[in-house]
Design a protein around this nucleic acid. Structure first.
Lengths: 182, 182, 182, 182
DNA sequence: TATGAATGAGTCTTCATTCAT
DNA sequence: AATGAATGAAGACTCATTCAT
């Protein structure tokens, strides 16, 4: 009965994104294996988190690919990205708060993804679709923040998972205010 | 009365917001007192976090008062709230992440603050200023998410602290898209 | 199954009987295991003492069984009991001193053993062998007291362990005074 | 409001004889003073216990004096001693179990009192009143053991304090067995 | 390969004691 | 003289990790 790394990572992400101090024991139990086995598959706690990070990067990269960021107008691309990235929101939220990793700049993968996202916002600005008084870098951060808030709200049952894409994308694109032209 | 609880809590908030596993020793040292003294003032780690929660609630409540949420139009009130709440953003973000507390529903204080915030959004919708396709509850969550993202971005130096209020409030109110009427 | 709970308890009893403040570390070392392992087997100091109590109860109960309290005359039964119970005397003495446990009335096991002992004394009284001006309850307490004193005296080298049974049983049965009939 | 050392010692004895690990804080509170004040009057925990020891020695010595051990037959003297010593039983019991002191032989006072007690038993043996198959040293230990058991039984309400002298003295002198000549 | 058992390292917590008022 | 406050030292406890089966 080979252990399914993917499964373990998913469980780990679910737990760690809710409580950064979740113990190896809790993770192992949630994955249905023993602590020792968990250690056989991931050299240690750090390695597990590293793997989680890589897992998140990969899934987020896939979401970006699937969203075809370069096609059509920036707003449409952003909408597609929200839809594709939403399932990864939990992991992203964890990695977002797991600041040590970021501080160490351990993983160049993130920088690349951040860059792609920032590029999307910049394209929107250059094409005249997005406002320019909000920096593309800030919009990148805000994207993560809203995605995390959405994941959390859905998890807590405050927002219907069905509405999530719309809730996030529309807020991000149009803001709260009722706009005149509508 | 040499030890200032307020001071200790501020230091603790600063450290814990960045790393949830900060040890009691580190917190004590940052506050300029001994571990034993820290324990004299807060019965234990849990008690400290609980106190931090109460502290955050109180400061956020004060920010709400200072923002005079009921005066003027909802958008203006929201702008004022962002400005007043920004200094508390770090603590709020930590408490949000450290959600064990929330799960236990320990503190009714939060519910009350959430309600005030939701009421503001609802007022905006009723007065025709805010769009109604995004639920007031979701906007409440999104507010926290953006506030947290802003605090983090500023801490990481990706957004100038000086721009923070504007960045958060404008994104929240107007969204990314360049609106026609401007 | 390398660690033998029985062995650990025996060592713990030996140490704690002599010094109630013996540290977990000392106990662990005496048992030949690490502190962490000690904690793995006994959830904490309290749990260890609780286990010690159960252990003492069990051993004392076995001593009672072995002494066949109901057979022959009460005096003979008492002599047999002293002989069988003597090895447990140390633990019993500790548990008696460490009376927080008793105050909480945690363990009904004791009550049952006390009752058996009291019943023995009562039988002796009813059969005309034991005096009736000393209550059976008091004799029960006195039994423990003398057993403890004996264990202590032997440990301190003031009484030869070889004489212990005789010293305790004879004092209990016949008292100090030289009796006429002998 | 000068602190009454005697009062503090009495409270300390009461607590420590029930639980050897009673903290300085508990003792201070029981005595109605602060921890700091307790430390002003007794240089430290050890000093307090030392003082307690001396206090116990003194009171026990007085009890011996009052019992006039050398007068009349040994049995009568023993009866008087039990009566006089009974109020000190609690302290004695504590000091009896507080073995470290004994092991260190810190206090020659005890040795002297022990010697007086042993001498009484020896006198009884020499005068033909006490049996000689139980060593005087053992009888000394047994005396403490029974006194302690009595104090405890009375405290627990298992023996009426009124019966205590008789219960202890009679058991010690005559044992359990109904003697023929009575 | 998988795991129950064991442990070193480090954190939390408490206590006796000292200090400043 | 008395005490609230502060702390060093020491013990309890937990966790990530390793070992032996």
């Amino acid at each position: 009965m080979a252990v399914d790394r993917e499964h373990v990572l998913t469980e780990a992400a679910a737990l760690l994104s809710r409580r950064a101090t979740t113990s190896m024991d809790e993770i192992a139990r949630a994955a249905g294996i023993s602590r020792a086995t968990l250690h056989r598959h991931f050299a240690g706690r750090d390695a597990l988190i590293r793997a989680l990070e890589e897992h998140g990067i990969e899934r987020f990269a896939r979401a970006m690919d699937a969203a075809r960021l370069d096609e059509g107008d920036a707003a449409g691309a952003l909408r597609r990205l929200v839809r594709e990235a939403e399932p990864v929101a939990g992991v992203l939220a964890f990695l977002f708060t797991e600041n040590q990793l970021f501080e160490n700049g351990v993983n160049a993968g993130w920088a690349r993804l951040d860059a792609r996202l920032t590029a999307l916002f910049r394209r929107g600005q250059e094409e005249g679709d997005f406002r320019v008084d909000l920096s593309a870098v800030w919009l990148t951060e805000a994207f993560y923040g809203l995605l995390g808030a959405g994941a959390w709200a859905a998890h807590e049952g405050r927002v219907a998972r069905h509405d999530l894409d719309h809730s996030i994308a529309e807020l991000l694109l149009g803001g709260i205010r009722r706009s005149m032209e509508k």
